[in-house]
Nucleic acid binder design. Structure first.
Lengths: 342, 342
DNA sequence: CTGTTAGCGCTTTCAA
DNA sequence: TTGAAAGCGCTAACAG
């Protein structure tokens, strides 16, 4: 006897053909209840599960979704992965994870396109894609869902980075701040992901609306890391006229700001008000005012709609190709209380 | 013309049989150099890649490894996933990610065994498995690699949790502390993972070696979260004779301790010395003394050896089934400086 | 409602 | 060194 049962073994034991086994096990209609029961109990007796590869080869469907992330060990992406994994598993889909990691990994990925012939759909998390990358994706001939970015003709779930950043800076302006530093990512970074460009725009919009002249030197690179945020803060605070408030485009960079301030003997918000972006669990720990974005909601939304398209529940395609989820300003001690010292 | 080339198209274009195409593309020996070149250039002309499912069905090999984690959005596991993904990708393997998530997810996972018939090998990260779970795994008839736990007959990479925890507590003892609190995980947690049991043992060993009587009330549950760590600290510090030092079995719980101390107006190390475990990036930010464990090294080591076994480079199996990697005590401000107040 | 039969696109003997 | 041919274990017409 074979180590592991095949569909023929089940058919024999249930006294039906393999086609009927296949139908019964997949819950297709037009199988007599009694027949189905016999098949199910035979399958369970033999501890049978269908070979996914044989099924995929025969049907052309892979019941697999590829998830592409630039990093896995950052809060945002870890949340995304966890949420997507759960949603896919529940739908009976496999998750194939692709981690770009660095520039070389990114290049290799879009070169080789390792997803070819192995997924029914693709999810892209917060990557800024150039035209070549978009067309590499399109050539897969599979539905694509975007998370954290928007593009005409693609399914997407995202937040409004511009408006959210603007709300953050508006808050600082309302507190009386005029000299407000920005710490962001590098818009030319080869691993570019979406937030840097758009959050900066929101910052600039807010200042312009407040009639504050933009000062290029008040915009510093923080590379979306704690270290980078600290370095940027050091540069900003070393000015002869340091900013009275700092907006960091991510919580992690804001932590770096707070640490640097502690080293310099400065306190938030009395010396410098600080606001971050994300609302990671640590933001609460650090008493950091920040913009909360619903990561799990975005991930669940786009996964659900991608699966609907894959299953040709066409309405997934039709309604709201681009969903925008709300963010929320969370006020904590790093901006509350007093206004700026003049 | 078909949307996507098949092996027959390549064979036709190169003027050889499909068997030769298969051999040439997989780099098998006994293919004439000239033939191989023709095949390779035909394949590249046609933008051909083999269908993994057809190959898997025909060969029985899946070139896929399943990675099972209890959580993805915790630092340790995110590091593991990133490292494993990179190592597998480099070896041409796919990563199938399984996130248990909660007790229900865990039960379902070991019930359904969704990895069946789809992986060549399995990696288990820091899960305490019971006998039923181990045998479910064994029934897969695939090599299994354990990360963060050790078991006779299995490949594993881990740290010595007992000795590492002991070193942490020894450090506190050396500073003169005698009343030392422990904040750990729940050894009965249904999502039980490995650290809680063994780090507690190291704590007890250190105290016994120092001739300090164990006090059950000094051991509190922190559930490996910031919140839980804070709650546990509150309970410890509310005692009439609060501990002068606290060892938290993870950095996250230690952060909770530090936050709680701040709320109580206490400072580390003067009022209470605090030590964590992991050395996450935030530990530096928080100036937390901690035990550094080499997560990426463990992940890379076990992945490499698992792949060796899968490829039947048998020496992977033979040498060092259980590898133990060193940890290191990282001294920072949360314990350094003064000793305990008496 | 069920069975027969032809593939799905490869890998792997076996022979040449 | 290469080719022919037989599967791998299913799904999907098609027929009944």
């Amino acid at each position: 006897m074979a180590l592991v049962a095949s569909i023929e073994d089940v058919a024999r034991q249930a006294g039906v053909s393999i086609a009927t086994v296949s139908r019964a096990l997949r819950g297709l209609p037009d199988v007599a209840a009694a027949t189905r029961d016999r098949v199910l109990s035979a399958a369970s007796d033999l501890n049978y599960v269908a070979s996914p590869f044989a099924a995929r080869l025969a049907s052309g469907r892979t019941t697999t979704v590829g998830l592409v992330v630039p990093f896995v060990n950052r809060w945002f992406f870890a949340e995304v992965i966890a949420t997507v994994e759960t949603a896919l598993r529940r739908a009976g889909f496999d998750l194939l994870l692709y981690n770009l990691g660095d520039e070389q990994g990114r290049t290799r990925f879009f070169d080789v396109m390792p997803m070819r012939k192995r997924v029914d759909g693709v999810l892209i998390a917060s990557l800024v894609l150039d035209e070549a990358e978009f067309s590499a994706l399109t050539e897969l001939n599979r539905p694509v869902g975007l998370l954290g970015l928007v593009r005409e003709g693609f399914l997407s779930a995202a937040i409004d980075d511009i408006a959210s950043a603007r709300a953050a800076v508006d808050h600082l302006v309302a507190l009386g701040h005029r000299r407000i530093g920005l710490i962001g990512g590098d818009t030319d970074d080869p691993m570019r992901f979406t937030p840097p460009l758009r959050r900066r725009d929101g910052y600039r919009d807010a200042l312009e609306a407040a009639g504050v002249e933009l000062e290029p030197d008040l915009e510093q690179l923080g590379y979306f890391t704690v270290e980078g945020g600290g370095d940027a803060a050091r540069r900003l605070l070393a000015r002869s006229d340091p900013p009275t408030a700092i907006f960091a485009e991510s919580d992690e960079m804001a932590y770096g700001v707070l640490r640097e301030m502690r080293h310099l003997g400065l306190r938030a918000p009395d010396d410098v008000a600080v606001i971050g972006f994300d609302d990671q669990p640590f933001a609460d720990l650090m008493d950091l005012t920040t913009v909360r974005q619903p990561v799990a909601d975005q991930a669940l939304d786009i996964t659900t709609r991608l699966l609907a398209v894959i299953s040709e529940t066409e309405d997934g395609l039709m309604r709201d190709p681009a969903v925008v989820l709300p963010t929320e300003l969370v006020l904590r001690a790093s901006t509350e209380g007093t206004g700026p010292r003049q």
